[in-house]
């Protein structure tokens, strides 16, 4: 159950502030998504840039809070942030970290990716990243096929190759590939996100996609 956990306006008015903002909370930096540095890997250059966050006026933000009291009376560790993009109805949620501030940023990154996907389809960053990942997986498979073919050939040639040697070589290759992945960051960026529900828009053409970011972003 989601609902905004606190309306600050009465409090702030009491304190003599004019509540000028529309949103309850300070807007997060809209450029944060663009500010992440990209790494040196060459095929990153072909990637479309990280999409920008949509304007705060298009976002409805809510925080998970059970019913009942809040503040000093309870101590919940829930830091989940859910965003609804009003023009499209897309809903994303992040509970990746214990920090609500951090989750607000992660959820905005996620929403920006989804909107980019919606607008740019196969040319979107997520699609291109997915492509790169697919190609990488394909080349990995090819490499390992080649490797085992070679091993089999050597086995035939020499009659018997020590099992251990083969395994060692294989392990080394695996390890190198993993490091490649880490360098590019993209794999981690996309990993661990799972689609929880896909609800058809009730009576409207809008589809509501709920996504949950559960993993830490290693940026």
């Amino acid at each position: 159950m989601f609902r905004p956990f606190l309306s600050l306006r009465p409090l702030l008015r009491l304190a003599g502030f004019s509540a000028a903002h529309n949103g309850v909370l300070p807007p997060s930096s809209a450029v944060a998504a663009a500010a992440f540095t990209t790494s040196t890997a060459t095929n990153l250059k072909q990637l479309p840039p990280r999409p920008k966050h949509p304007p705060e006026s298009e976002i409805e933000e809510s925080f998970l809070k059970g019913s009942g009291p809040g503040g000093q009376k309870i101590n919940k560790t829930n830091s989940a942030v859910q965003l609804k993009h009003l023009p499209t109805g897309i809903v994303v949620k992040s509970q990746a970290t214990r920090s609500r501030t951090q989750n607000r940023k992660i959820a905005r990154d996620l929403l920006a990716l989804r909107l980019d996907e919606l607008a740019n389809g196969s040319q979107s960053r997520a699609a291109v990243v997915g492509d790169v990942k697919q190609k990488r997986a394909a080349s990995k498979a090819k490499k390992s096929r080649r490797k085992y073919k070679k091993l089999a050939e050597e086995k035939e040639k020499k009659g018997n190759v020590k099992e251990e040697g083969g395994r060692l070589a294989g392990e080394e290759e695996e390890w190198l590939e993993e490091e490649e992945d880490g360098e590019e960051e993209e794999g981690k960026d996309e990993g661990g996100r799972k689609e929880v529900t896909t609800l058809g828009g009730t009576g409207t053409k809008r589809a509501t996609i709920v996504e949950v970011e559960n993993t830490r972003n290693e940026r």
Binding site: L25, Q72, R100
Partner: peptide, 17 residues
């Protein structure tokens, strides 16, 4: 006492103001 999320929210808001 452990800091609460409500306190975090208005403190950030306060800083912006």
């Amino acid at each position: 006492l452990i800091p609460r999320p409500e306190t975090e929210a208005y403190t950030l808001h306060l800083a912006t103001l």
